[in-house]
Amino acid sequence: MTNTIRKNIVCIFLFLGVCITAQEKKQLGSIPQILQSIIPNDRTDFWVLVHNHYGKNEELKISGVKKEYIPQSSGFNLFPEEDSFYYIAYSRAGKIDYITDLSGLKTFIGAIDNVEEAVIDATAEGYFIDEEFKNVAGNYYQDASNYYIDLGKLTSKECPYQKTHFTLTVNKSSGKVTNVKDNGTYIELYNKKCVNNPRLLKIEKKEMPADEPKKAKQPARRK
């Protein structure tokens, strides 16, 4: 075997190895880690990410020289029905402002710089990282052109309560979602009040006939 052939074979295997590695799925970080990966679209003098949990504020990230700001009483969540919230205080041209909703957060992020920002952008459209089921709704892989992100979405708040997982293809250059693949429902829950709960249907009490024929009394026997 000539040296040229050997080199070509080695290059092919290296290329295949890189391709396989690039497509290995990685778990997304926790919600605080994702929010700390934000790169603001416009230049700021300072910004701070705050997590409010049961009324207690915790500063998760401070960028720039810290300035005085007013603690906020409301904010945004990246997971439905969370018992806490996040907000961002920032200074631009000496003026303090606040981000307390997903729309404002999306504007603050602007162009998509990383997979974490792509996830936050998708969250504004109703998707979320399911931290209990990250294997189906909290991971991603990427190639040179796109991120491929597995996220969850509430597809029914009525009975049965449903979560469906999707794979979003996000173009790295434009930050746009170019494809959404529906991977099906991974959670379906019924509660006791559901009129269509199959468990309740099985244990419904059977209605007794309104009028049952009475047995005729047998005449007493004479001794």
Score class of each variant (00 low, 15 high):
I20E: 02
L16Y: 06
I20Q: 01
F128H: 03
G17Y: 11
V195A: 11
I38E: 01
T167W: 03
V195L: 14
Q36W: 00
N191S: 13
K193W: 09
A144F: 07
S103Y: 08
Q142P: 01
Y190P: 00
R221F: 05
I99R: 01
K56F: 09
Q142D: 05
V10T: 06
T100W: 00
V170F: 01
V48N: 01
Y148M: 04
T100E: 08
D42W: 03
S103W: 04
V18N: 06
I5H: 09
P219E: 11
S174R: 08
Y190N: 02
P219L: 11
N3C: 07
A210L: 15
N52V: 14
C159N: 06
K192Q: 11
F85A: 09
D83Y: 07
G64F: 00
N3K: 13
E125L: 04
Q218L: 13
K181M: 09
S174D: 08
P71N: 15
G138A: 10
F85S: 10
D97Y: 01
S156M: 06
I62P: 01
S173Q: 14
Q33F: 04
Y161N: 06
Q162V: 07
Y54H: 10
V48I: 07
T4E: 15
I20A: 06
L16K: 02
E117N: 07
T44G: 02
V18H: 04
T164H: 07
K56V: 15
A93Y: 12
A122M: 07
I20H: 01
L28C: 07
R199S: 13
K172E: 03
T44Y: 03
F13L: 15
A137P: 00
T21F: 12
L35R: 04
Y87G: 07
I99H: 02
P40F: 00
V18G: 04
M208V: 12
V136D: 02
T2H: 14
K215L: 11
C11L: 14
K95V: 15
F128K: 03
Y147Q: 00
P209F: 05
A210H: 10
K66W: 08
Y140W: 03
H165A: 00
E131K: 08
I120D: 03
H53T: 13
P32Y: 00
K153F: 00
K214Y: 12
Y141I: 05
K67L: 11
S156A: 11
L105C: 07
K181Q: 11
T123C: 09
N135Q: 07
E131D: 12
G94F: 00
E131R: 09
E207W: 10
I39R: 01
E59W: 00
P80N: 05
I34G: 00
E188T: 15
K25D: 10
V177R: 08
K215E: 10
H165R: 00
D211S: 14
V18R: 05
M1S: 14
P80L: 04
V195I: 13
V180R: 09
R221K: 15
H165W: 02
A89K: 02
L189W: 06
N197W: 06
Y141H: 12
K134S: 13
G184F: 08
Y148G: 01
S73A: 10
P160K: 11
K214R: 14
N52D: 04
E58F: 10
L168W: 01
N114A: 12
I88W: 04
E131Y: 05
E207Q: 14
F166W: 02
